[in-house]
């Protein structure tokens, strides 16, 4: 029963919830800027300024003509941006109101897919084969990285005995916010490493970036996206990036307040970027085989260690 007494309309809570996706997008775009700068430096270039992705997004939204393939295309794009925002609300940050008590890890894992699914729908509406090839690769890779990633996540769940992220985060912070001895990266290290490898696939960074392979299949899903639709895609990518990194930080690196999670996400992202820049792209089947071999075996070993210790 809805109890009206419990139904406190907390303006501050609502506003901070609304603020969260904006913050996530801004940080995600900043990360993209950092990535571009970093890769430029490794290529011995200067690279664009850090705010470059913001300019890109503003430019894309200020385009004077846009092309759409119909209302389902629009619906897909809107669903695409809504997905990661929804996901972010279920991730607990210390001191910020969040919806984490109302949805556990399973809810997050499934809201995580809404965004990519929406974008995939938009890519499917047009007749462009490249977009659909990108989707096929993305979904195939998802099947690939999901196995090690889920095993690693379940190792955490096995250790924590719960699917509630708030409890998982609290458990890791029990020794203090800055003490990593209770972080699951330290408690289930083998599975965490496997999860970390799979995270590269989750974020679609090289060597697992088959889904947007600019020199093979146009740019995959983005092939037919232009103007504000590409802008939506960028915002989605930024927000999704932040949400995924935040989820991984909360699961394995102890979570914490928003700024700390952001720092942890940055740390994770810099590592991921360095791998991305140094690696080439694998063929889809190679990447799939890789994911189902080493990280899976590692994650299984990690899970077994948790179960039998």
């Amino acid at each position: 029963m809805i109890n009206l007494n419990n139904f406190q309309i907390n303006v501050w809570a609502a506003l901070s919830l609304l603020f969260l996706p904006i913050y996530g997008t801004a940080i995600g775009l900043l990360f993209m800027g950092i990535f571009r700068r970093l890769s430029a430096r490794i290529h011995q270039r200067y690279g664009p300024p850090l705010w470059q992705p913001y300019a890109d997004v503003i430019k894309l939204f200020s385009k004077k003509s846009n092309f759409s393939h119909g209302w389902v295309y629009d619906l897909g794009v809107i669903m695409g941006l809504a997905g990661p925002a929804l996901m972010l609300w279920f991730i607990p940050f210390n001191g910020l109101p969040n919806m984490a008590p109302y949805g556990d890890l399973i809810v997050i894992l499934y809201t995580m897919v809404i965004g990519p699914l929406g974008m995939a729908l938009a890519a499917a509406v047009g007749a462009s084969p490249w977009g659909v090839l990108g989707v096929a690769r993305a979904l195939g890779m998802m099947f690939g990285y999901e196995l090690p990633f889920m095993l690693a996540v379940l190792a955490v769940v096995a250790k924590a005995g719960t699917l509630r992220l708030t409890e998982i985060a609290a458990m890791q912070q029990s020794a203090g916010l800055w003490n990593p001895s209770n972080w699951f990266y330290a408690l289930v290290p083998v599975a965490a490493v496997a999860g970390h490898i799979a995270l590269q696939g989750v974020m679609g960074e090289k060597p697992f970036d088959q889904a947007i392979a600019p020199h093979e299949i146009g740019t995959g899903i983005m092939t037919e996206f232009g103007g504000k639709y590409l802008g939506m895609m960028f915002l989605f990518a930024a927000l999704n990036l932040f949400a995924e990194l935040a989820l991984f930080s909360v699961l394995f690196l102890g979570g914490g307040p928003l700024w700390l999670v952001t720092l942890k996400a940055l740390f994770l992202y810099v590592i991921a970027s360095l791998v991305d820049i140094t690696y080439g792209r694998f063929r889809p089947d190679q990447a799939f085989a890789l994911l189902w071999k080493w990280p899976t075996v590692l994650a299984l070993i990690g899970l077994m260690i948790v179960l039998f210790s």
């Binding site: 894309l60 939204f61 385009k63 003509s65 092309f67 119909g70 047009g126 007749a127 504000k228």
Partner: peptide, 21 residues
């Protein structure tokens, strides 16, 4: 929110699905 962001851009023209690159 996504709808709001989406509608901040110029309205789109609907094109045939075969109008692809």
């Amino acid at each position: 929110i996504a709808l709001l962001v989406w509608s901040s851009g110029a309205p789109a023209r609907w094109i045939s699905p075969r109008n692809t690159w």
